[in-house]
């Protein structure tokens, strides 16, 4: 569980606070999506949730962040890194090794996973992300999308209890993105891994995340169940946050029929809504 209370953070040399009075709770086994326009503080929030702030980025830190009971300010980054796996936005700076296999080994070796267990963990993670065939390739020979999958696999292999992902599908096409989202869902539902996901691909996010938090100018302006947050579609759009087209359809139909229509977040729901309207 991640509990954030009244968190405000200003980067050293930063002119204005990157985060202001953030309070947010992600329960064990939760799946939270974070959305918001550029510069709203999404990445900063992800760093704070993983304990990288304030450990690596100095600045003025007020409030508290606790991860499974550990206060991130008082705990070492070593203890935190055993709990939280983070996939960074810039994949090229996340990848440390020149070869896929070595990248997979890096964290496993460091965390002292036994020699007997390592091959199985590595294969399983590569398999899950669908890149078992890339194992012996050099990173330099991979496309951006393939590198992104390697980065995700190398974190999943570590079996963290909490996964924080900062736009992990930026370089991926829609089908591969959906595949990654499905994988996250599987990890979340079958292994109870808590997921915090920053994403611009709003349509996918709304299908998969159970809760949403909307950030704007360093503050949380909305948070709650995905459907509830999306029922404020117009407010979101005014902030510069897009909504799935099916949600927009719900809103337009509500206006035009003069009757409140359900807030749809996926195709199935939209299909049902339309079919009910045309008997």
């Amino acid at each position: 569980m991640i509990q954030i209370q009244d968190l405000s953070f200003t980067y050293k040399n930063g002119e204005s606070p990157a985060l202001q009075e953030i309070s947010l709770t992600v329960p064990d086994g939760g799946f939270l999506g974070i959305i918001g326009p550029a510069g709203a503080g999404k990445t900063t929030l992800a760093r704070a949730a993983a304990g990288i702030i304030p450990h690596h980025y100095p600045g003025d830190f007020y409030g508290s962040v606790t991860v499974n009971g550990l206060d991130t300010v008082d705990s070492s980054i070593i203890d935190l890194s055993r709990l939280v796996g983070m996939v960074f936005q810039d994949v090229d700076s996340q990848i440390i090794s020149p070869l896929v296999e070595d990248e997979m080994l890096y964290g496993l070796e460091n965390f002292g996973v036994s020699r007997e267990e390592i091959p199985q963990r590595m294969e399983e993670a590569l398999e899950k992300v669908g890149i078992a065939d890339l194992r012996d390739r050099s990173i330099a020979s991979l496309s951006g999308g393939q590198r992104q999958k390697v980065a995700i696999a190398s974190i999943i292999a570590l079996k963290p209890r909490i996964l924080v992902l900062d736009e992990p599908t930026g370089e991926l096409d829609p089908r591969s993105s959906r595949q990654i989202f499905s994988l996250l869902k599987e990890l979340n539902e079958e292994q109870g891994i808590t997921i915090i996901l920053i994403e611009q691909k709003i349509m996918l996010l709304c299908e998969f995340a159970r809760q949403l938090a909307v950030l704007s100018k360093g503050r949380i302006v909305r948070q709650g169940d995905t459907r509830e947050v999306l029922s404020h579609a117009e407010e979101l759009q005014a902030l510069g946050v897009n909504c799935p087209r099916v949600t927009t359809l719900s809103r337009v139909l509500s206006e035009k029929t003069g009757a409140e229509q359900p807030v749809c977040i996926n195709l199935d729901e939209a299909e049902n809504m339309v079919r009910r309207l045309i008997p």
Binding site: D173, P174, R245, L267, A270
Partner: peptide
Amino acid sequence: ASILPPQMIALGLRL
């Protein structure tokens, strides 16, 4: 081509 069509097109096709 491994492409997922836009939501409204997909919805139209279903309907």
